[in-house]
Simulated scan of single mutants.
Amino acid sequence: MANAEQGSLDLSDLDPKRRRFLTTSVGVVGAAGVVGLAVPMLKSFAPSARARAAGAPVEVDISKLEPGQMMTVEWRGKPVWLLNRTDEALASLVTVEDEGLLADPESGMPQQPDYAVGSERSIKPNILVLLGVCTHLGCAPTYRPEVAPPDLGPTWFGGFFCPCHGSKFDFSGRVYAGVPAPTNLEVPPYKYLTETQIVIGEDQESA
């Protein structure tokens, strides 16, 4: 019977089956309480949105990125482009240099890591990795792979065009001369884990 003064339950007067049932029920409720406590604790170990925005690396699978296609991922709250350049796009890098269209063709300004220099500005020739932010006022340029469209003229060989103020960049993100943007588009730190896995936000390991 119940002991009102102690506020506890005396199970000694109950039959064995009912006593076993009550004991098991108390154990299950206690275990459920432990699980309920554990779930929020485990969730707290997952990276927060604030941590990702602060610069946590982002792993990207490019296995389905066909030549000519571009994909966008977010890193540090900014868009990062991954473009699989065609042979024609790579050839155009020489054309714009020969035509004298670029302000910084040798990428002398430090908008890229040391391992992503040269006209291609990439670790591997066909895969370009760029921050999709115009270096003028931070607008988002658009991908314009077509050659000499009416709105961009005969000296356009494909690349990126900023519709905000008319800045132009080639297929390596190198800025055209005479446009508002002062420098080339930035290449973020990145490295390859495999042939088709790239990590944005971590530097390429030295050979």
Rank of each mutant, 00 (worst) to 15 (best):
Q111E: 12
D98M: 11
E88L: 13
F171H: 13
A116V: 06
D104E: 12
Y115S: 08
T95Y: 03
G166H: 01
H165R: 09
R174K: 14
T142S: 11
L90Q: 10
G132D: 00
K78N: 13
N126I: 10
L101E: 06
G118S: 08
G173V: 01
A116N: 05
D114M: 15
A89L: 08
P105W: 09
T135M: 08
C134M: 09
F157T: 02
V147K: 12
G153V: 08
G158W: 04
C164G: 09
H136I: 07
E99T: 06
P145C: 10
P110H: 10
L130D: 05
P154N: 14
E106H: 15
V133Y: 05
A148K: 08
G108K: 13
P79E: 04
P149T: 13
G77Q: 12
P145L: 04
G166F: 01
K78F: 07
P149M: 13
G166E: 03
G159V: 05
G132V: 01
N84V: 05
L131V: 11
N84T: 09
M109K: 13
A103W: 06
T155L: 13
S119F: 12
A140E: 12
S119I: 15
K168A: 08
S107Y: 04
P125V: 15
P110K: 11
Y143G: 01
E88K: 11
Y143H: 10
Y176C: 03
L101P: 01
L131Q: 11
S167D: 07
G158S: 01
K78Q: 11
E146T: 12
G108T: 15
H136N: 01
A103Y: 03
E120T: 13
S167Y: 06
P141C: 07
Y143R: 07
H165Q: 12
W156I: 00
R85M: 07
G153K: 09
V80W: 00
R174L: 04
G159M: 00
G159Q: 04
S172E: 01
K124F: 13
D104M: 04
P79F: 00
L102T: 03
Q111W: 09
W81S: 01
A89I: 00
L83F: 07
V129G: 03
E97L: 06
R121Q: 07
L130V: 02
